[in-house]
Computed example of a mutant assay.
Amino acid sequence: MSTTPYVQRPGWFTNKMLNPLVSWLSRRGVSVAGSGVLAVKGRKSGEWRRTPVNPLHHRGEIYLVAARGHVQWTHNMRAAGGGEIFHGGRGRRFSATEVPEAEKPDILRAYLRKWKWEVGAFFQGLGPDSSDEELRAAAGRHPVFRLTYLD
């Protein structure tokens, strides 16, 4: 069994075309199904890093799910403890708390219900109708953060 955390790196098209387009649209107030742009300080550089994200509003809370696994923004979020989400030109500061594994199945199910059309390929065949057991087995591959807006 590998001890390397699950990471699904984006390809050239995503990095060079899709993410910049979604970020550009989001900065201008055009959201793709509720997407936004996450800004979080780099854990080593201290510089702001930006990436498109799909915030999930679920049961009165807001979550960020790392569909691609333990990617750079998740490491930065752990170090920074929060950041900003941008929709249009407006950013909202937040603090972030990582969600324990036991709470993830319900959140992952809701996330897949809303976003599977975009991120389903990163969940290895799972979907909103997957069992709790199947979602629990995948929970360690997908960090989840609960956001608390500060303003």
Rank of each mutant, 00 (worst) to 15 (best):
R146Q: 14
D129I: 05
V37Y: 03
W117G: 13
D132N: 02
F94Q: 09
G36C: 07
G89K: 05
E133P: 01
F86Y: 15
H142Y: 02
T14I: 15
R136L: 03
P52H: 03
A138C: 01
A138K: 02
R146F: 06
Q72C: 10
T148M: 06
H70P: 06
A96L: 10
G69Q: 10
V30N: 02
D132F: 01
G42R: 08
M77G: 11
R43I: 10
R78K: 05
V71W: 06
A137T: 00
R28D: 03
L108Q: 01
L64P: 09
K41W: 09
G88W: 01
D132S: 00
R9T: 14
R50Q: 13
A66P: 12
A96W: 08
W73N: 06
P128M: 02
E47V: 08
E101F: 01
G91H: 07
R68F: 09
H75D: 12
A138H: 04
P105V: 01
N19E: 15
S45F: 10
L25T: 12
L126I: 05
Y149K: 03
G46M: 12
L25S: 11
L56W: 09
P5C: 02
P128G: 02
V53D: 10
I62Q: 10
R93C: 07
L38N: 07
V37D: 12
F122I: 02
W117A: 15
E101I: 09
A102I: 00
S130W: 02
K16A: 15
